[in-house]
């Protein structure tokens, strides 16, 4: 391998590092601030990274699911990347924050994590730290929203999605948004209006969430990238609940497990169909 993509100390917290010189590898770190998922840097769109050569990427268990997802969907050949796994006890929501991992600072996706051991990795480093706190704020929030009247829920999302300026940072930072040309950038025909008005924003966020149904590996990068703090993780998580409850699918770092959207069972639930 010619470049190791890992984390290093930056001017503010940790940040992605690209090590091409073995001597600098000592600068790599892993701790509870290593929130960023580094798998997006494997995307062929990152021509400036690809130029460095054959990559090795450091992954937490949750990030490893992104590598598996890319392999599953034939976007990446497993043998083209060296995967270095780290055992994880949860990370903070904001990698630039100086606060220690606690129930208040932990990333929304960590409580109850089942992917702390990166099975897919070629090399696994570190001892298993204690698990992150249990109890998901996010699932509680979803349940709360579902109890609301549709009109109130609509109003909530109009407020949240209404802040969207259509920068598409959510897409660019997502390891699983791998399309060479996104449907939202296509103009002939134009399915998704590019304007950040209620119509365009609704179409975009439905499209993004739906295209990630069963594909999202719950790394939270979309929500972290969003400059206006839209709670995108709620949409992803909601669809993950559907995948799990209706189709028995949970995100995994086993590339052999099929995607719940690409597959079907003859007796899938269909109560919603007349």
């Amino acid at each position: 391998m010619q470049v190791v993509i890992g984390w290093e100390e930056g001017p503010r917290g940790v940040r992605p590092a690209f090590v091409t010189d073995p001597a600098s590898a000592r600068g790599l770190v892993f701790d509870e601030r290593c929130t960023q998922n580094l798998v997006p840097y494997l995307s062929p769109r990152r021509t400036h990274v690809a130029r460095l050569g054959r990559p090795a990427v450091v992954v937490k268990g949750c990030d490893a699911r992104a590598v598996a997802g890319l392999v599953r969907e034939t976007q990446l050949k497993r043998e083209d990347v060296v995967v270095i796994g780290v055992r994880c006890g949860g990370v903070v929501a904001d990698p630039t924050s100086l606060e220690a991992l606690s129930p208040a600072t932990v990333s929304d996706r960590c409580p109850g994590c089942t992917a702390r051991e990166p099975h897919l990795a070629d090399h696994v480093v570190g001892e298993m730290p204690p698990p992150p706190p249990a109890g998901s704020r996010r699932d509680a929030r979803i349940a709360e929203l579902e109890k609301m009247e549709p009109a109130a829920r609509w109003a909530f999302w109009q407020e949240e999605l209404g802040r969207c300026v259509r920068c598409h940072a959510c897409r660019e930072a997502c390891p699983m948004c791998f399309c060479e040309r996104c449907v939202a950038d296509k103009t002939q025909p134009q399915w998704v209006e590019s304007s950040p008005h209620p119509r365009g924003n609704f179409a975009w966020h439905v499209t993004r969430a739906l295209h990630q149904a069963g594909r999202c590996i719950d790394c939270g990068e979309c929500e972290r990238a969003c400059p206006v703090d839209i709670p995108l993780g709620l949409l992803n998580r909601k669809l993950a609940q559907v995948a799990s409850e209706q189709f028995g699918h949970v995100p995994t770092d086993d590339p052999a497990v099929p995607s719940p959207v690409g597959a079907f069972k003859k007796d899938d639930p269909q109560e919603f169909i007349l």
Binding site: R45, R46, H48, L52, C167, H168, A169, A225, V228
Partner: peptide
Amino acid sequence: WADVALRCHGCGACASV
């Protein structure tokens, strides 16, 4: 330039804010 922009996703969040 090749060095300094490695971790840039090209997401444009910077320009939005």
